[in-house]
Design a binder for these strands. Structure first.
Lengths: 214, 214
DNA sequence: GGATGTGAACTCTTTCACAGCG
DNA sequence: CGCTGTGAAAGAGTTCACATCC
């Protein structure tokens, strides 16, 4: 399969596999079968084999996958094998949560700068030791080898912020603002909209009536 | 089309359409065409028409969609037209952010209780006036007409917490814990895993080389 | 035997083209 | 004439069945 276009859905699943592999590795395991990996992450075993088959033959028939090797391969595929410097834009409640989040480091993310427009925040230092700078100077990230941005600003501020980030050479953006943003093709945006996820939850909940267990 | 199974992808897009409609309504607009709605949310106009066609004929040919009516219809489809009482499980940094999040109320969510296992937190009152209770008493939600839960607990605590929530009659869970959780079929879980989104961002960022704008 | 890797069938989703209506 | 609504075609992604290899 090696020479096909990779489905986006496969790329979405790879980080999930990776996390599971890291957990298994921590428990001292050496090999894992597609079946047991599948059970852990909640997909089918053939889905897992198909996903890996897009990238190469990582397994050993009759044995399974070498956990350490597979984890390294996935990291390489996802380009998580290099540390990337990131900037936080909009320092609020969400950012405290983000900074407290264990696992950004695991995925090669190093938050080295933070910006805000609020004069009350500028100059303050965050939990991780980074001092908040004035967003007016966002263009300085260009000289600081920062390629990723996490933005958590109000809706109206999102598009202008993204425009400035794109101009400053940022290549990837994780957007927590509740709206679509437009960027040049060379910039990748992933929007994570909490309210949108929440809003579709009731759809799956029957108003009343019989229920059966699983 | 009315009598088909609804694609999950359509359900995922409906909240996005709804938000856009609410913004347009606030600006005093009365009608919107599939084309202009499409431009606002970043999909194609035929995608929008197809999505709506699963539920009925909401538009007027030659004119477009009545914004108020369409918003009401979508709310009804998503079952956002009733207030749902929700409980927060695990009160940490993320929860402060969640409580500050404008827009839970917009989608009919009312956070009426909070639980934690940390004795230092139990008894304290959150920003929204809700007092944090001992998670050991989570079963009391059964008598309090609470149908949704938002859980933001460490990975190891997630499955036990979810089991207790399911036993307490919770019907829908928004899971921020970084892992898969198993539930009875009658319970719907939506997992929102920030690290998993972040981990796939570098995949789309070329290591180096030529770039073209859009 | 036991597990992987993969073409082929199948299912789900998007796109198209245009009929139908206001 | 403009814009919606929809069957049909095309495209993506998943599932299956089994050949293949350790």
């Amino acid at each position: 399969m090696r020479y096909h276009r990779i489905p986006d859905e496969t790329v979405r699943r790879l980080p999930v596999y990776l996390r599971c592999l890291m957990v298994s590795a921590n428990q001292g395991e050496r090999y894992i079968s597609s079946r047991s990996l599948a059970d852990s992450v909640g997909v089918n075993s053939w889905q897992i084999r198909k996903d890996f088959s897009y990238f190469g033959d990582f397994g050993t028939r009759g044995v399974g996958y070498d956990i350490g090797r597979l984890a390294r391969e996935i990291k390489k595929i996802l380009r998580l094998d290099v540390i990337r410097r990131a900037v936080l834009v909009g320092v609020g409640d969400l950012d405290s949560a983000l900074l407290a989040y264990p696992g950004f480091g695991v995925y090669g993310l190093d938050i080295v700068a933070a910006f805000d427009i609020d004069p009350k925040k500028i100059g303050k230092t965050m939990n991780n030791g980074v001092t908040i700078e004035d967003f007016a100077r966002i263009d300085t990230v260009k000289e600081r080898d920062i390629s990723l941005a996490i933005i958590a600003v109000p809706r109206a501020a999102a598009q202008p912020a993204v425009d400035k980030l794109a101009a400053a050479g940022i290549k990837g953006i994780l957007n927590f603002a509740p709206c679509k943003v437009s960027v040049p093709k060379r910039v990748k945006v992933i929007t994570l909209d909490i309210a949108m996820e929440l809003a579709r939850l009731p759809y799956y909940i029957p108003r009343a009536g019989r229920q059966d267990d699983s």
